[in-house]
């Protein structure tokens, strides 16, 4: 892939996801999440909240919405994460639990080393959401 030089701080893909983030949870009130998770803390400057809807039969994520407090890389990472777990008919919960932060970074066209934790936090919030879903399912039974 030919790399084009830009004056933007991060990769072109990060820029697109930062400026036009996908799957933002704009309307929490009217959103029925099957699982919800949070990661990070405001002292570090990054907090991520991820909500998922799960197809009970296939155990695949059919929707993923999020909100992030953080830098451009953090916002883009959560946006990309939400795309990755919902594309191609949705990711299985098992696969999503094992999703590696490196895979998110790769899809973003790379992140500066100092910003790797942004992708880790998004993944941590997703894990929380999946575990929250499992807990709720257990309670139903």
């Amino acid at each position: 892939m030919k790399k084009t030089k830009t004056n933007w701080l991060y990769s072109q893909i990060v820029k697109e996801h930062f400026l036009n983030p996908k799957n933002v949870l704009w309307d929490e009130k009217n959103y029925q999440a099957d699982g919800k998770g949070m990661a990070g803390n405001p002292i570090c400057g990054d907090v991520m909240m991820v909500c998922i809807k799960v197809d009970l039969k296939t155990q695949k994520i059919k929707d993923c919405k999020w909100r992030t407090y953080g830098c451009g890389a953090a916002i883009a990472s959560t946006s990309m994460l939400s795309v990755m777990v919902t594309e191609k008919g949705g990711m299985t919960l098992k696969k999503a639990l094992n999703l590696k932060p490196q895979e998110i970074i790769k899809r973003l066209g790379g992140l500066p080393v100092l910003k790797f934790h942004c992708s880790v936090l998004g993944q941590a919030a997703l894990k929380e959401a999946i575990n929250d879903y499992f807990k709720k399912q257990k309670r139903k039974k």
Partner: peptide
């Protein structure tokens, strides 16, 4: 409730150059 780096990058899209004391 918001983080400075993302604010600076957003403003840059509107041609406004400013800075932040954010850790990021």
């Amino acid at each position: 409730g918001i983080e400075g780096e993302s604010l600076v990058l957003k403003l840059d899209q509107y041609g406004i150059s400013v800075s932040t004391g954010s850790a990021c």
